[in-house]
Structure formats: C-alpha cells, structure tokens
Design a protein around this nucleic acid. Structure first.
Lengths: 362, 362
DNA sequence: CGTTGACCTGCAAGCGGTTGCATGCTCTAA
DNA sequence: TTAGAGCATGCAACCGCTTGCAGGTCAACG
C-alpha cells in the first residue's frame, strides 16, 4: 500500500551520507556534525517531506510514543470529555492514544494483551466505577507496562492512581442545601455495585451530621442511573409522597436529576421554590435544563490530565503517585435560595448567567 | 521496559523448531505441517502466553491492524457515540483505533502525517461539518493511504464517503408538524459555515412547499449551536414576539431545543400545547427533558459502522463507495398532538414511553 | 615529520518478526 | 537398489530504523 514511502535510506543516498548520519540528524545527535552536512541532510528531509516510521523506530527503541486508553462503559457521556481531554494532553506531550472500550473485565484482559502487542508505552484505565476486577492487571508491572488507573481501585503501588472526592462533594451539597434552609434532604443513590455510590452515601451521612440533621432512612432511595428512567421517576414519586416530603433531593447523577425535575414539575411543584434539586457530574446539558441544574462537578477532565502527566513522568523514570482531586458544587437555579417565578425577566437572565462554585477536598 | 518480553525466538527454541516454523504456525500456514509439530509449537505458545509483536509484524507486512480516526470538534457529544460505535466495530474486525482530535485543518494535516508514521492501515475522518478544507488530504491516495470521510465533502473518488440526509430529515419534521395542524412553523438555523445548515434550510423550504405553506423570512433565525445559549434564548424570544407567533419551532439541535423549551416555558407557554418543539441529533438527554423532545435522529452510529466496513473492504482490495443514510424523526411529547397537562397521570407515563419513528431517505 | 587529539562519518549488528526458496527426509514405484 | 515425488522444516534476506564503536581526516604540536 504505502507504495513509495520515503525511507531513511533514500534520504541518505540523496544527501550523500550514510543512513546513520541521517538517523543522527533525526534524533538530535547533532553535536559533532559539520554544519554543512547537517544542513544538507535537513534540506533533503524537508524537501522530500520525510517522516521516519515511528513503528520501525519503536521496534528498536521499545518506545512507540503511543499510549493505550482503556475506557469502561464508554457510553457514559461523562467519560467522553475525559477521552477528549486525554487526547489533547497526550498529543501535547507527543503521544497518540489507542482507545479501547472494555465491557467487563474479561474483555479488558483481552484489550490489554492487544495493547501490549502494539507496544504501547503505558496504559491508562478509566472507569466510572471503582468496583472492577483488577486481577488481570496485577502482572502488568512485572511485564514492564506502566499503568495509571482513574476512578478505580489501585491494583498495586506500581500503578498510578487518580480519584476524586465523591464523599466531600455530596457532603458539601448537603451543607449547601442546609444553608438554603432545607431541613429534609433526600438522597437518590446509584447502584450498590459502585464504590462511588458508597462514597456518596457516606458523604450524605457526613453532611447531615455536620449540619446537625438526623439521618432518615426513608429519605434514601435507589435510582440506578444505568437503569430505565421510569424507575427514577418512581423513586422520585415515592420521595414526594412522603409526609413530610423532602424539600430537596440530591440525585444519583445529572440524568436522574433531570427526571427528578420533570417528575416534580408534573406533580405541580416548582423547582426550586417547592423542591431544590442537585445533580452529580455537571454534564453539558445541566445548564440547559429548566431550571438550570445545580450539580456536583466531577473533575473528569483534570483527572485525565493528571493521569497522563503521571504516566509521562513514569515513562521518564519517575515513580507513580496517587492523586485525589476535589469536586466542586456548581450552584445554578435548581437550588436557588429565592423562589423563582415562571415569568422571564431581565433579572432572571442575570441570575441564570451567574454561577457559584465551591470546592471540596478531603 | 518490556524487560523479558517473550519473542518468537524463544518459542522456537523451546519447541525445538525454527523461527520460521513458529511464524508459519502463527500465520496459519499450517497445511503441510506435521500434526505433532503443530501441537508442540501451539503448546509452548499458549503456556508462555506468547503474543507476537504486532509492531514488528507491521514493519515487514506493512499492515498494523490499526486504523486512524480523526475527529473534528470532539467536544460535540454527538460524536462520542460515533467514536464508541467505531471502536466496537473496529475491534470486531480485528482493528484498533488511534483516535485523534483535530481542531482546524492545519492541525488535521499534522495529525495525518503522524498517523502515517504510525503505519495505520487507513484513516476515517469524521466531522460535524462538511465545510472543511480538504486540500491536505488529496495526496493521501497517491501515498497509498485508504481513507473514508463521514459527513464531509469527498476529496476525491478514491475516498469512501458516508453522509446522512439532513434535508429530508428537516423536510420530514415540517410535514410532521403540519400534520399536527401547525401552520406557522419557525426554523432556527445553525451557523452558515456548515454545509449541513444549508441542507437543513433547504429541507425546511422543501417541507413547506410540499405541504403548501409559504416560506416566511421572519420565521427563520440564527441560533448558532456553537455560540452562547443566551443567543439562542434571544432568537427564541424574537420568534415568540412575532405576530402571529409561530406555533412550532424546529431548533438547530437538541441543545438549542432545550433552551427553546425553557424560554417558552418561562414566558408562560406550555410545550407542546402552545408551542411544538423539534430538535436535531437525538442526544441522550433529549428523552429526559420536560417534555421529552421530538427530534431528528442523525444516524451517527450507523454511519460509523458503514465507514469502518467500507474501510475494511478497501483494505481487502475493494474499491470505495459512497453511502447516504436516512435520518429519522423520533416523535416524543414536545410535539405531541394532544395538549398535555402538567399533572402526572398513569396515562402520561404511558404516553411518554411511546415512541414513534419515521425515516426519510432521499 | 611523525604523533596526537579532536572531530566527523560510516560499519555492522540488531530489534522481532515474515517469507521465498532451498534443503533434507521419507516413501513409493520402477 | 535407486531416482523422484512429496512433504516438513530451516536458511537467510529483508522490513526501516537505532546505536556502539571503529575508522578516517586534518590541524596543531613536539
């Protein structure tokens, strides 16, 4: 296919030097080289638009300038921003990304072996759940594969790790709602299979404790964001049927929050006047809802960048680290303190434009 | 790094055969081979978990089983689904994806050269705009690089191409709204820089013509989905201020549609009773809005699959094709014929669950 | 004038595979 | 008994590039 691909040999011939000299030019080993030769070789390279085959180079150096990205559950819109951020950061650092989507850990094991045959310089695993089987990863360090896990349990100290603080995020949301005067704050939890769910539940409890509210069993319901939205609707209705009904709901994620808003509006409630709603993720559409959604932003993008940075450092010989990032509460109208009318006004626009941000670290 | 990577040589030694024999086993050239040898080699391979380096193999065969994916404006959530679909399809066909995000055509040119050094077997370009500069692509065929473009102008007949029918989609939406009784249907167009915008505008005109409605200049406004949502809000307000105001709006995309819904609701209008709203894209959140959004679904996922299929066929020696896919109108409540109340009812749930789908091809 | 460095450049081996063709073996038939 | 067919395996070149080290040139120095 690559019929007439330019090779280093051709460059050498045309510049009337040896292949090694060209290689030296390419790799900056140019210290002890006559300016004349250097210039000549460079000239030929640029006129022929020669780019050395990174695959041949990789074969001998063991470096391919490629890193593998293994994403679990790529459908989750949230993780797309991570992929984008990762790609940007990687390219800035001179790397390319082989992106693989793993469905389940068996699949992941297979993906990893493929990635190894491709000679990637390292692998980043990004999951939306910490509760993943890691057994197939434990032999990576022995094989000399560098790896960083994001939002996921760490298979061993040879792995880099980036997480974010779900617990503090939810606790902060509870505080925020308490500040607004809410005294009965409900919590929709995600599926138990995820560690983050546990963390968030812990954050909910902690937040309540901190502001001095009792933990009430009936205010916690399951709303599995991987399940059918109808189930979220039902969970919301159950909460709203309580007596006294909660005046605020923290939802499993932004999608669930959207349905919470819709469900309560259909019951004739006004958000935030009758019910405050807080989401988790800060997905792109959060700002487009009516009302715009207050939500806990997960630092997915930053996590991606830190993971890449860590991996690149590791390739350069440094040892792996563990980083925990802060989440932030982005306050929008769905938890606005003042009741909103449904009528547009200049004032409303301004209020909508405003955005308050608060961060929580451990 | 890959300190003790197993090589074909080791396998050869342990099986007491030559390297070539192992290679023959690996590549299925096993016809004239004694069953005993075959089994022995296979045994060693599997006990040592040997996987041949695809990079070394690529060097000699010229095939890397890797294809490049160049995505323009990766932030667009819509295209993430394409990436996911592409990855799935690629892996099923035995390929991996190097994903690159190109911002602008200069960047794209650079990405392409990098991809070439990595020895990709082909490249898929996917853009959310047909109006991209293609000059830097025209030399790809000469270099023996196979390429498929998605939703984008075709640089030449050597390129594969997959598009979808924006025009018919919008025309169909107009028909749908007309069927519901709407006689004044507004259209929010996207930025002029995109071919799709022109196509959609043409579809709008054609739809009007088909149902016998006049084209009214004042019913068309710009709502650039890459711009600030406040501008969408303003465009919506301008439409609603008209006298007579339109009773239906086709929005530039789903995000814009969400804002249209919000804006009209804030003015005290009820969707769809007072105003029908149709989006474009069928993004994930369309179904979560209040009311759920009727939208023109673009076959992004299918396009990705067709593009991959075409590329794989081309690698196998077939020539490129051009495919145009149908769009479908997904009817949800935002254009429901019957007025909706804001009060929940069992009936409402059922109606919400329903989904009507209609397809338009050229 | 012979040596010695400093300074450039090229040789050749090797990375981990693939592949055309030669080689050696076994077995059958003349 | 032996040539030839047929089969199983190995040889060696090659893919495009890197790199340690040898080798060659030239000016200055003793």
């Amino acid at each position: 296919m690559s019929s007439d691909r330019v090779t280093i040999r051709q460059i050498a011939e045309m510049s009337e030097v040896s292949v090694s000299t060209v290689s030296n030019v390419l790799n900056g080993r140019t210290l002890r080289m006559s300016a004349e030769t250097l210039e000549r070789v460079r000239g030929v390279i640029s006129t022929l638009r020669y780019r050395p085959s990174s695959i041949a180079r990789g074969l001998v150096t063991g470096r391919t300038a490629t890193i593998g990205l293994v994403v679990a559950e790529i459908e989750t819109a949230l993780f797309f921003s991570a992929v984008g951020a990762l790609e940007t950061a990687a390219r800035a650092a001179g790397y390319n990304l082989i992106v693989c989507h793993a469905r389940g850990s068996r699949d992941e094991a297979e993906v990893v072996t493929v990635l190894r045959t491709k000679g990637v310089d390292g692998i980043i695993f990004i999951a939306n759940s910490e509760a993943v089987d890691n057994t197939h990863l434990t032999d990576l360090p022995a094989a000399g594969i560098l790896a960083v896990v994001v939002n996921r349990r760490r298979p061993g100290p040879e792995f880099g790790r980036v997480t974010w603080n779900d617990r503090a995020g939810v606790a902060g949301a509870v505080e925020h709602l308490h500040d607004l005067g809410h005294r009965r704050i409900a919590f929709l939890r995600g599926p138990r299979s995820r560690d983050s769910t546990r963390e968030r539940a812990a954050g909910y409890r902690r937040g309540l404790k901190k502001v001095g509210l009792p933990y009430q069993e009936d205010c916690v319901r399951l709303a599995d964001y991987t399940a059918d939205p109808l189930t979220w609707e039902r969970a919301t209705s159950e909460l709203l049927d309580l007596d006294p009904a909660p005046t605020a709901i923290i939802a499993s994620d932004d999608s669930v929050a959207a349905v919470v808003i819709r469900t309560s509006q259909r019951r004739g409630l006004s958000v935030p006047r009758d019910l405050a709603v807080v989401g988790i993720d800060d997905q792109m559409f959060a700002t487009l809802l009516n009302p715009p959604l207050t939500t806990i932003r997960l630092p997915v993008k930053e996590a991606a960048e830190r993971a890449l940075e860590m991996l690149v450092d590791a390739i350069a010989g440094q040892s792996m680290r563990e980083v925990r990032l802060a989440t932030e509460l982005v306050v929008r109208d769905s938890s606005s303190p003042e009741p909103r009318t449904n009528v547009s006004s200049p004032d409303a626009c301004i209020r909508q434009g405003r955005r308050t941000v608060q961060s929580w670290k451990e």
